[in-house]
Write a protein that binds this DNA or RNA. Structure first.
Length: 318
DNA sequence: AACTGAATCAACCGCAGGGCC
DNA sequence: AGGCCCTGCGGTTGATTCAGT
């Protein structure tokens, strides 16, 4: 049983591409196109002993025209961070918003630089020879990211952001300036994984949640919409096309807080272990919020509700 | 200058999903 | 309906480069 290999592994070259290989692939594709079949492509190129998958990757990430390499701008940083917080590691979707950037580039950039920037520039804990391994930072990152992903992705139908034709595309109202995320760098004991109760930095995440949650309203609170949705009325975050329409749409139908707290609500995060939510997500969420169950429940439900999320069961797989 | 650990990034791998037969 | 094949995606690996001592 098992899947047939995509190519004859014994007869294909692996590893870095040589300039000659690049030239062959590039000139062929520019002349003839890919023919809609990457697997068959290498056989058509004289002297190119590469797997079709490898050709595709090389073309998409390096050879195709208008690829942008090198430093990311502050604008790009902001967009990547806010989109990561919004939709998680959907690199291809994020890349689609950054002309000339590839998903691989963005992924690498996030993993090597932005994540550290976002989480603060802590000293390293125990690491292996290659800087990987089981150290407190990585563990914390996993949990923080797990919490973010759970909050921001698992409970949201991001397809509700923007028009249906732009399903899975960037939701501009969710963009946060990098400065917001960085205003309170994380600090913790370098030598051991901090227990959530000692993890002072959840205040940063809370700030983030509060900022995001600011789009919510409590039906018992009769403040004007403009008080609860300042970014809608001050125009400060309207640099993205379509933003104004989107926030106006939201202002027209803010979600009552009571929806969050109904056990059968689409917007509620149940904390019952049997409800199917991923353990990893809940742990991350708890970690982020210092095991404050009320805040965990309210924030997750709130975020899910704000962004049209469905609090339905999830097995944690995609 | 040499060594070592950390950072970077290109490339690989396995899987999921969709299209086609 | 079900199996096969291909594409695209995200996670991971490993070679190379960089920086610190």
């Amino acid at each position: 049983m098992g899947r047939a290999p995509c190519c004859d592994k014994a007869n294909v070259k692996k590893g870095p591409w040589s300039p000659e290989e690049d030239a062959k692939l590039k000139s062929y594709i520019l002349k003839h196109g890919t023919g809609g079949n990457w697997i068959a492509l290498p056989q058509k190129i004289e002297g190119l002993r590469r797997c079709g998958k490898s050709c595709r990757l090389r073309w998409l990430n390096y050879l195709r025209p208008n690829i942008k390499h090198g430093d990311f701008s502050e604008e790009e940083d902001n967009l990547i961070c806010s989109m990561y917080i919004s939709i998680g590691s959907r690199w291809s979707i994020i890349a689609a918003q950054l002309p000339g950037r590839t998903d691989n580039d963005i992924k690498n950039y996030w993993n090597t630089k932005l994540k550290k920037k976002l989480l603060g520039d802590q000293k390293k804990g125990r690491v292996d020879k290659r800087g990987r391994g089981n150290n407190p930072n990585r563990e914390m990152e996993k949990r923080v990211v797990g919490g973010f992903n759970y909050l921001m992705t698992d409970n949201m139908d991001i397809g509700n952001c923007g028009s249906s034709s732009q399903r899975m595309s960037y939701c501009p109202a969710m963009a946060l300036p990098m400065s917001t995320l960085l205003q309170q760098p994380m600090q913790y004991n370098n030598h051991e994984l901090p227990h959530p109760s000692n993890f002072d930095d959840h205040t940063l995440i809370r700030k983030l949640l509060i900022k995001l949650g600011g789009r919510f309203y409590d039906e018992n609170d009769h403040h004007a919409v403009s008080d609860r949705f300042p970014d809608i009325t001050d125009g400060s975050s309207s640099r993205n096309p379509g933003h104004e329409q989107l926030v106006n749409d939201r202002a027209a139908s803010p979600i009552p807080m009571s929806h969050l707290l109904q056990s059968d609500s689409h917007f509620t995060l149940g904390l019952n272990a049997n409800n199917g939510y991923s353990k990893e997500g809940l742990e991350g969420l708890e970690f982020l919020l210092g095991y404050d169950e009320t805040i965990v429940r309210d924030s997750a439900g709130l975020l899910a509700g704000v962004y049209g999320g469905r609090g339905g069961p999830s097995d944690g797989t995609r």
